[in-house]
Amino acid sequence: MRLLFEPMACIACGLCEVACSLHRDGVLTPMSSSIILHQEDKANYFGLVLKSASEGLVLARPEGVTHGAQSSDSGGPGAKPILLREPCDLCDGAPRCVTMCPTGCISKEG
C-alpha cells in the first residue's frame, strides 16, 4: 500500500498533520507528523510533504508529485524538520490522513 496525492485538491486545512500525530502519539500536534503542510502565504503556494518509508520524501506540489527527494524547504528553524521525523507507517493499513482529508487530495493505493 502507498499514499497517492492530488495536490490541486488540497485546501491546506491541516487535518492530515494532526490525524497523523493522533495515530503516532495519541496527541494533536503538527510537530510529530510524517506529513507536513507546506505553505507560502503571499503567493498562495501550498502543498504536502510526506516522509515515506519506501519512497523517501514525497513532494505533492502544485506543479505535480515527485518521489525520492532528499530535502524539503518546508518548515522553518522553529519547526521540526521532516527528515528528523518518523516515516509514515500507513497507520497499520488504515491511513488516518486519508480518512480525514475532506477533499480526496490524499488517497491510498493497494
Binding site: 490541486m8 485546501i11 491546506a12 486545512c13 491541516g14 487535518l15 503567493a43 498562495n44 502544485p62
Partner: peptide
C-alpha cells in the same frame, strides 16, 4: 485556489491573482 482555515472542510477563502495569470501553478510573483 481556495484555501481553508485549520480543520475547515468547506473554505470561504479564495485567492485571486491580480498581477499574474491565475492559472499559473508554479511559484511566480511573490
Amino acid at each position: 485556489r481556495s484555501i481553508a482555515c485549520y480543520g475547515c472542510p468547506f473554505p470561504c477563502r479564495s485567492f485571486y491573482k491580480l498581477f499574474e495569470d491565475a492559472s499559473v501553478k508554479e511559484r511566480g510573483a511573490q
